[in-house]
Design a protein around this nucleic acid. Structure first.
Length: 325
DNA sequence: AAAGTACTCAACCGCTCTGAA
DNA sequence: CTTCAGAGCGGTTGAGTACTT
């Protein structure tokens, strides 16, 4: 991603070429070269000495960050997360929480920043997906009658995000339920906190191996983090079913609901037979639970954006859930 | 083609942790 | 035991790019 040199310094109020001032913003190739030379000579440590010696007008923090995120060997820069990597992140996030540095130790070539960015993007995408189908149905598919004012949808979502503490998997709809103007589909939406908590997770433990350090230098620099890795295998998650207050016993979501991007690997047509019964139980898809089979007119771009694994677990649904279908 | 929106990613900030003095 | 500096981490921001309308 090309960016004008110094742009970051401008936007963050940093000053360039101002004597002893600390330089901020995007790194120049020459600076990278200096930093690489420092690492070659001293190893990935003594970051502060780079500035104290006058080699760079960068803080030690900045130097370390640059090394870790961009200059370290064996990084998968410019490479999107694979489906397996996504699985790993999702599983580990559910287990560890937002311990990105720790999670990244399980993903060779990925930095904590990579993982953090991936997760953040995924959260945004999920939040948007959970909202978009409802709006799309309001305007395109359902088309009339029960118009749910978009403003109410937004405000309801906002109220969930802003005021509802996460207290567990069964509480997700409560704050939404309080929104007076929402349709029940809207009320059934998953709260932001549920998403952020890693609530949407896999039930299967992953066959993970602790990533070996890419180099001796890297091993020493992230030794503490790598020591965490042997804690595998994970405990096996119990099913964490989403339930919705106003659809108790009828609509819940089984395990295996994950980020959408892995859907890229499955053609939509393959999913139709299994998607239909699932949709009937997933109110946040914008599908009316009581109205019978879903027509194929359901937005295929939406399905394209869902993970194939999401449907893998259907055969594994707990009996109580399966009976409710 | 233009405008709007979503996505990606680099880099900053503030806080916490850790180890040496 | 306390202090302090350096290192590390997680959250956040915002520019550039890609995609959609």
């Amino acid at each position: 991603m090309a960016r004008a040199p110094g742009g970051g310094a401008r936007r963050r109020g940093g000053r360039r070429d101002a004597g002893e001032a600390v330089r901020k913003g995007p790194w120049m190739a020459e600076e990278d070269a200096v930093l690489l030379e420092h690492v070659r000579v001293h190893g990935p440590r003594d970051w502060s000495s780079i500035r104290s010696k006058g080699a760079l007008q960068r803080t030690g923090k900045s130097c370390r960050l640059r090394w870790v995120n961009k200059l370290r060997p064996n990084l998968k820069t410019g490479c999107k997360f694979s489906a397996e990597e996504e699985r790993v992140v999702i599983e580990l996030q559910a287990q560890f929480g937002n311990k990105w540095a720790r999670i990244s130790t399980y993903l060779p070539g990925r930095t904590d920043n990579d993982v953090k960015n991936f997760w953040s993007t995924r959260q945004k995408r999920l939040a948007r997906l959970l909202r978009a189908p409802l709006r799309a149905r309001s305007s395109k598919i359902r088309n009339t009658n029960t118009k749910a004012p978009v403003s109410s949808v937004d405000s309801a979502m906002g109220s969930c995000q802003d005021h509802a503490p996460f207290v567990g998997s069964s509480s997700g709809g409560q704050c939404c339920q309080a929104a007076p103007l929402m349709e029940y589909q809207d009320a059934a939406r998953i709260s932001h906190d549920q998403i952020c908590s890693g609530f949407l997770s896999f039930e299967q433990p992953l066959p993970l191996q602790a990533a070996a350090p890419a180099s001796d230098a890297e091993a020493s620099s992230s030794n503490a983090a790598h020591q965490m890795a042997p804690e595998l295998p994970f405990y096996q998650h119990p099913y964490q079913l989403m339930d919705f207050p106003d659809m108790t016993g009828r609509c819940s979501i089984g395990p295996g609901f994950v980020g959408p991007s892995t859907m890229d690997y499955h053609p939509y047509e393959e999913l139709i037979p299994i998607v239909q019964p699932v949709l009937m139980t997933m109110p946040f898809f914008g599908i009316d639970c009581a109205r019978g089979p879903v027509k194929a007119e359901a937005r295929d771009d939406f399905f394209d954006d869902l993970p194939p694994d999401m449907f893998d677990s259907l055969d594994q649904l707990p009996p109580s859930t399966r009976n409710s279908l």
